[in-house]
């Protein structure tokens, strides 16, 4: 069917009586349907109600889903049609891919794809296709969800490490890639083993040298444990000595000090945050109020942090640059 010719004028459809929508429309929120879509829906109701499983019904769903990819009744009908007509599912995948590239943020499309691949039983070409879609938007959560299903189902773990490394290389601010890294790490047979964690921690600390990047700083929290906390503290202090403090770095110092019940250090860190992180002044002041100040034995690192935060204004770095908003006057 070509969309220019009305369905009523096509001999293929001459035996079908189009059915209009049954109910009187609600008087508010009227949908402005395009005439072609409205006509297709009339024929859809007709074939649908007659439980017609035919080639023309399949073509009709093709056109309807192109016009409205969220039309879930249409997707369901289509899946049944493919089954009953014993259609070639590889061809269906081609149709789906072309639609996906234009509507990549649609839930139905990706869930339908998962069902289709289950039936086909092979994931050939899928990762390549997903790489293309992630090139359009590397944070597309639908695609990541489908990708994780694919990796788990077809055991594609090994090659994924390389892909995630490439994404983080291109854009270390891509939190979806960090999240995927955690997905891989937490499914590794070495998860929570000492050597594995140490090695991964070094990778994250290396990225923390970019003190404006929230992602590796959030990731650090994966490794907070008795065994690694000294290394994290040393890593953060070394970075601060070299690059200065950012709110993310300070936030992590606060987190560590809280865990160690070093109230006096928390007090210093949160007071500094209240001063430099204008946006969250109320929040950091609340943290200051909640802190139980008790004197503790200071380590050399603690002494350095105290001095740096108290004495040297140059040690902190304005934090608004990433969001491209300047600090309010």
């Amino acid at each position: 069917m070509t969309s220019e010719i009305s369905m009523a004028q096509q001999s293929e459809w001459s035996d079908v009586i189009p059915k209009p929508e049954y109910s009187q429309k609600v008087k508010i929120g009227k949908i402005n349907y395009l005439p072609q879509f409205e006509e297709m829906m009339k024929y859809f109701r007709s074939v649908h109600d007659n439980k017609e499983y035919s080639e023309r019904a399949l073509n009709l769903t093709t056109n309807l889903l192109k016009a409205c990819p969220g039309f879930y009744t249409g997707w369901h009908y289509r899946a049944e049609l493919l089954d009953i007509l014993k259609k070639n599912l590889d061809e269906e995948l081609v149709f789906l891919s072309s639609l996906s590239l234009r509507n990549h943020k649609n839930y139905q499309i990706w869930n339908y794809r998962r069902e289709l691949i289950k039936k086909i039983g092979s994931c050939e070409g899928e990762i390549d296709f997903l790489n293309i879609v992630l090139d359009i938007d590397c944070k597309n959560i639908h695609v990541w969800g489908y990708r994780q299903w694919l990796i788990t189902t077809f055991n594609l773990w090994d090659q994924e490490y390389e892909y995630v490394a490439k994404l983080l290389d291109e854009d270390p601010y891509n939190n979806s890639a960090w999240s995927q890294r955690y997905f891989l790490e937490s499914h590794s047979q070495f998860y929570k083993t000492s050597e594995f964690e140490k090695k991964n921690l070094e990778f994250v600390l290396e990225h923390c040298k970019n003190i404006d990047n929230e992602c590796p700083y959030n990731y650090l929290k994966v490794y907070y444990c008795q065994e690694l906390k000294e290394r994290i503290m040393q890593g953060l202090v070394d970075i601060a000595k070299d690059k200065g403090f950012s709110r993310f770095l300070l936030q992590n110092l606060g987190f560590l000090y809280e865990k160690d019940a070093k109230g006096e250090m928390c007090d210093i860190v949160y007071k500094k945050l209240a001063k430099i992180d204008f946006m969250r002044k109320g929040y950091w002041n609340w943290k200051v109020r909640r802190t139980v100040r008790k004197n503790i034995q200071r380590t050399d690192n603690d002494i350095w942090v105290c001095r740096a935060l108290r004495d040297n204004e140059e040690y902190y770095n304005p934090i608004y640059n990433y969001y491209k908003y300047s600090a309010p006057q």
Binding site: G29, K30, I31, N32, Y33, C68, G70, Y72, T73
Partner: peptide
């Protein structure tokens, strides 16, 4: 004004769109 007209894309989520309008 949202009471008056809506685009075709909302077809499959119409009840939710109506909820948001109301």
């Amino acid at each position: 004004r949202t009471r008056e007209s809506l685009p075709q894309e909302v077809h499959s989520s119409y009840m939710t769109v109506l909820f948001f309008i109301i």
